[in-house]
């Protein structure tokens, strides 16, 4: 299985954004991620699939060190972003997270206005010198989040007053406003209805042009629709990683096949 990963990653042609080697994650005594090695490409949507509790979200949270906020969590192994070890002692997780944005399962707009939600990131990172700069950044982010037309007339309304789908697109806009290089999405559509899901999926496809995206999803159809690469996790291990089309039509590992055909998971 380990060899197979190597073989799969060797196929890559695009520039490598993230490369992980032998990553282990522990929650207290529980070994949640075992020996995961993977290389994620730039300008690509990579989907992490697998049954609940397989470690795909835990691994995703390693990529921007969100696991640091959990006291009992411990990460071992190498994760490199553009060749720099993100778990190096000298690395400031705050700067890392400015480059690796994240969108969560449940939309979590701050209890502030729509404008302030989007402007929050640029403000703390000092991306704008003037009010006009900030206005421009906010507008650009909201356009990228495909929500500008819906909210442009009520930027000062609270973000919590939007519908679920709008809230999630607002959160995506908020994440892109800090100009990240990678966008991590943890089941971004699981709290949304089908129409909102379609809108967000469309947006993901659009965002692929500028960012490297990693999306954790429960829905295999969604993975098939939006991703170019797919990684299948099972019981904390990375079972198979490759082109999405290949994983879904012709999986190498039988566990992958069982999952895709609905026998496990």
């Amino acid at each position: 299985m380990y060899d197979m990963n190597k073989q799969e990653t060797a196929v890559t042609q695009k520039e490598i954004k993230f490369s992980a080697r032998d990553v282990q994650v522990y929650y207290g005594d529980a070994h949640a991620i075992k020996d995961v090695s993977v290389e994620l490409e730039d300008k690509t949507v990579t989907a992490f699939i697998g049954p609940s509790g397989c470690g795909k979200s835990s691994f995703l949270r390693c990529l921007n060190r969100m696991n640091d906020t959990i006291d009992i969590c411990r990460v071992e192994g190498d994760i490199k972003l553009d060749g720099e070890d993100i778990y190096h002692k000298a690395v400031d997780p705050v700067q890392l997270r400015a480059r690796v944005g994240m969108v969560f399962q449940k939309p979590n707009p701050f209890p502030k206005s729509i404008y302030d939600n989007v402007a929050y990131g640029p403000r703390i990172h000092g991306l704008a010198r003037t009010k006009a700069d900030l206005d421009e950044i906010v507008e650009k982010a909201l356009r990228r989040g495909a929500i500008w037309d819906e909210v442009k007339d009520r930027l000062s309304a609270p973000g919590t007053g939007l519908s679920g789908g709008q809230q999630q697109r607002l959160c995506i806009a908020r994440a892109v406003a800090t100009e990240p290089e990678v966008l991590l999405m943890d089941e971004p559509c699981s709290a949304l209805d089908p129409i909102a899901t379609a809108q967000v999926e469309e947006l993901i496809d659009e965002l692929r042009k500028s960012y490297s995206l990693v999306i954790v999803t429960h829905s295999m159809q969604q993975a098939a629709r939006v991703s170019q690469k797919t990684a299948f996790f099972h019981l904390g291990s990375l079972v198979e990683y490759g082109e999405t089309a290949q994983i879904f039509t012709n999986p190498v590992d039988e566990r992958t096949e069982s999952y895709i055909t609905g026998r496990i998971g």
Binding site: V91, D92, Q95, G126
Partner: peptide, 20 residues
């Protein structure tokens, strides 16, 4: 607009004045 934005290879280990 800002140094950070115009420099895509923002280093993770070097802190600028603002970060400090």
């Amino acid at each position: 607009m800002s140094d950070v934005m115009s420099n895509p290879g923002r280093g993770l280990q070097t802190q600028d004045a603002r970060a400090r």
